[in-house]
Design a protein around this nucleic acid. Structure first.
Length: 199
DNA sequence: CGTTGGATCTTCT
DNA sequence: GAAGATCCAACGC
């Protein structure tokens, strides 16, 4: 198994990286002693200054978007709809605000811990542990305090265990929930492993 | 099954 | 002051 290095994320082809992340393992031990993780099965690419769907469109630089302007391998987390944290991995070099949204996992490690984290918040039982970006961040214990930190073993990291996703197993579609982005909403920048997203 | 609406709050205008 | 890279349960069929 190989830990994915910063170099991996500092390459310039964000779409290719988003595709390569499919089948990789992501781990979180943000809470010490609580190791959780799973296989990445769905990603979306956000292409920085030229992408209307990206928070950093037109190189809009704010406190929130700042991590995206850093070098690849950093973490960008932000709050959506007031209640969901969304996990992104920054790519490309410094000053180019590309990022990849991790949308879904197939849970493999620490299922009991994820189950617990998904319990409270008023509701009773959750079905999917890590299907959907908000759910996934909750199961991994990610909050926006992680935003701006680096991927790091023992905190939050990604490993390659040699899983290969064949081209015919990969699905491509427009990104979810970005209708406001005009023509960019149609771009085929969402990637997923066919059949894996269904429960 | 598919569709609908409520929860909830940071961020930027 | 408005909008938003969502989730879930409750409906209606």
């Amino acid at each position: 198994m190989t830990l994915l290095s910063e170099h991996f994320f500092q390459r310039e082809n964000t779409q290719a990286i988003a595709q390569e992340l499919l089948g990789k393992l992501i781990f979180s031990e943000i809470e010490k002693g609580k190791l959780v993780g799973g296989i990445i099965i769905e990603t979306e690419a956000y292409l920085g200054g030229e992408d209307r769907a990206c928070h950093a469109y037109n190189y809009r630089r704010t406190h929130r978007t700042e991590p995206m302007f850093g070098p690849g391998g950093q973490i960008y987390v932000y709050l959506c709809y007031g209640l969901h944290h969304l996990l992104n991995i920054v790519t490309h070099g410094e000053g180019v605000p590309h990022a990849i949204l991790i949308r879904s996992l197939q849970p493999t490690h620490g299922l009991d811990i994820m189950q617990q984290r998904r319990l409270f918040k008023g509701h009773k039982q959750k079905k999917a542990l890590t299907k959907g970006p908000g759910a996934l961040a909750q199961a991994l214990g990610i909050t926006r305090e992680c935003s701006g930190r680096k991927l790091e073993k023992g905190f939050l990291w990604i490993e390659d265990r040699g899983t290969l996703v064949e081209a015919n197993q990969m699905g491509i579609s427009p990104r979810i929930g970005v209708d406001y982005a005009g023509p960019d909403a149609q771009l085929p920048l969402r990637f997923y492993i066919k059949g894996a997203i269904l429960n």
